[in-house]
Amino acid sequence: MLRNGAAQVFRQLVRHQSTDTSLILERSINRVQLLGRVGQDPVMRQVEGRNPVTIFSMATNEMWRSGDVETSPAGDVSQKTTWHRVSIFKPGLRDVAYQYVKKGSRVLVEGKLDYGEYVDKNNVRRQATTIIADNIVFLSDNIRGKDQ
């Protein structure tokens, strides 16, 4: 409790004593949690002079009933699948994911959203949304390494 009070006093002090508005400390959150299935076996890529990255796709599903639920209790069930690109830069997690995540695995991915651009092979500039994972929880029963 004392820590929280001290932190609040510090924040107030920084806000009131600073004449430069760029020094105001402000808290923000960029967190994502996805629960779904892996769409492809992970690949590890390395661009020259940079650390390697493990990448895989992941699907999440949204389901809903359409129609009048009162007259037709079963209703028509509709489903939408959304695909996500997951990138892992953290050295230990990157290697574990590369070895143990496989197509069809059910996983919980925690991380942050990242928006970027890239130029495809036809020299067309494209937008890309990526989940930068900092934690993965394996939920499938059949976890096996790539060599097994």
Score class of each variant (00 low, 15 high):
144 R>M: 14
146 K>C: 11
17 Q>I: 09
106 R>A: 12
136 I>V: 13
114 D>F: 00
5 G>E: 15
105 S>R: 09
53 V>E: 02
114 D>S: 15
128 A>T: 14
57 S>L: 06
42 P>L: 08
143 I>R: 03
89 F>V: 05
137 V>Y: 06
87 S>K: 09
30 N>Q: 07
12 Q>Y: 08
103 K>W: 11
146 K>P: 07
110 E>L: 11
42 P>D: 10
83 W>T: 03
68 D>I: 01
17 Q>M: 12
101 V>F: 03
55 I>M: 10
50 R>Q: 14
108 L>P: 05
94 R>F: 05
70 E>R: 12
67 G>W: 09
66 S>M: 10
29 I>F: 12
67 G>C: 12
15 R>G: 09
74 A>Y: 07
53 V>K: 05
23 L>C: 10
81 T>S: 08
143 I>K: 00
60 T>W: 07
120 D>C: 08
139 L>D: 05
55 I>N: 01
111 G>Y: 02
85 R>S: 13
72 S>P: 01
28 S>G: 09
135 N>A: 12
129 T>S: 02
39 G>A: 05
134 D>W: 09
85 R>F: 09
62 E>R: 05
22 S>I: 07
41 D>L: 00
99 Q>G: 00
7 A>T: 15
101 V>C: 11
145 G>N: 03
46 Q>D: 04
126 R>S: 06
136 I>L: 05
31 R>K: 14
103 K>F: 15
68 D>P: 02
98 Y>W: 12
65 R>D: 02
101 V>D: 10
61 N>L: 03
124 V>Q: 07
85 R>I: 11
109 V>D: 05
109 V>F: 06
93 L>C: 01
88 I>F: 06
58 M>Q: 06
59 A>N: 06
142 N>K: 14
100 Y>W: 02
126 R>G: 03
60 T>F: 01
33 Q>L: 15
4 N>S: 13
39 G>S: 02
100 Y>Q: 02
103 K>E: 13
7 A>M: 15
16 H>Q: 15
142 N>R: 14
47 V>L: 12
144 R>C: 13
42 P>F: 01
140 S>Q: 06
72 S>L: 13
122 N>I: 02
50 R>Y: 11
83 W>C: 01
85 R>Y: 09
61 N>A: 07
55 I>E: 08
130 T>Y: 04
10 F>P: 06
101 V>S: 02
37 R>S: 13
83 W>Q: 02
6 A>R: 12
91 P>W: 03
23 L>G: 08
146 K>A: 12
60 T>N: 00
94 R>P: 03
128 A>C: 14
20 D>H: 08
26 E>R: 04
95 D>P: 01
72 S>E: 15
101 V>E: 04
116 G>T: 09
36 G>W: 02
50 R>I: 10
12 Q>H: 06
125 R>Y: 04
17 Q>P: 03
135 N>K: 04
100 Y>D: 00
21 T>N: 11
121 K>R: 14
136 I>Y: 02
123 N>S: 14
102 K>M: 13
67 G>L: 10
7 A>I: 15
44 M>R: 03
12 Q>L: 11
137 V>F: 08
